[in-house]
Amino acid sequence: MSGATPATIAPSARIYPNVQLGEGSVVGDFVIIGEPARGVAPGEAATVIGAGAVIRSHTVIYAGNVIGAGFQSGHGALLRESNTIGDNVSVGSHSIIEHHVDIADRVRIHSQAFVPEYSTLKRGSWVGPGVRLTNAPHPLCPDVQRCLVGPTLEAGAKIGANASLLPGVRIGENALVGAGAVVTRDVEPGAVVAGNPARTVKHIRDLVCPATGLNPYRAILGVPGDDSDDDDHAGR
């Protein structure tokens, strides 16, 4: 393409055959892109990464991933094979994305998170540091491969630090899971849950930021940004 900005690749990085790296991307030291899964020959599965990616040192991206534009990784992130990842997604340092995960646009995954195979993270969902998603209802069962199912995060769902999500749970649109919660069942859209097991404690419309005195999700809820004339708010 005329005028395209070539990718910048550190000399210590390893790029396997059949990797398409978008223009303007930056690949850091000791990054590996296109690592073949077991039983797959090098270059057999295509790896596609869109324009403007920033892939920081020691990240490993297996072959067979399709990743949109604006991708960013922290240091030492691991992405296994056959994932579909949208635009403007970030995966934090030392986080692990297993295979066959579907991640939509504008998802943010913070550091040291674990996302197992067959999980779905929809547009704008947010995963805090140390979060663990799980997918095996009965670990070590001889039929475990038949029933693996990861959690689904609906659009705008937010998972607080160190929370654990059990297999197959669905976190509703714009719901908020508190830090350290253990989620054993589906969470309704807009609900705020906390505890072990996680229980609904309020709705996001009831939240007030102590710094601003405003609802932090007022844009989602369609609440005006200036509440100075709201008598109920003024009395809090």
Rank of each mutant, 00 (worst) to 15 (best):
M1L: 14
A10C: 12
S12W: 02
R14V: 15
I15R: 00
Q20C: 05
E23T: 08
V31P: 06
I32E: 09
P36M: 11
R38D: 08
R38G: 08
A41F: 01
G43I: 00
G43Y: 01
T47G: 00
I49E: 03
I49N: 01
G52H: 05
T59Q: 08
N65Q: 00
G74A: 14
H75Y: 14
S82K: 13
N83P: 00
I85Y: 03
G86R: 01
H94N: 11
I97N: 04
I97H: 03
D102H: 14
I103L: 07
V107E: 10
S119Y: 02
S119R: 05
K122L: 09
K122P: 05
R123V: 14
P129E: 13
V131K: 07
T134C: 03
Q145D: 06
G150L: 08
T152A: 14
E154C: 13
A157I: 09
A161V: 15
A161K: 04
L165S: 08
G168S: 05
G168D: 02
G180Q: 07
V183I: 09
R185G: 14
R185V: 06
V193K: 07
A194S: 13
G195K: 10
P197V: 13
V201P: 07
L207K: 09
C209E: 11
A211Y: 08
R218P: 04
A219S: 14
G222M: 03
V223M: 12
D226C: 12
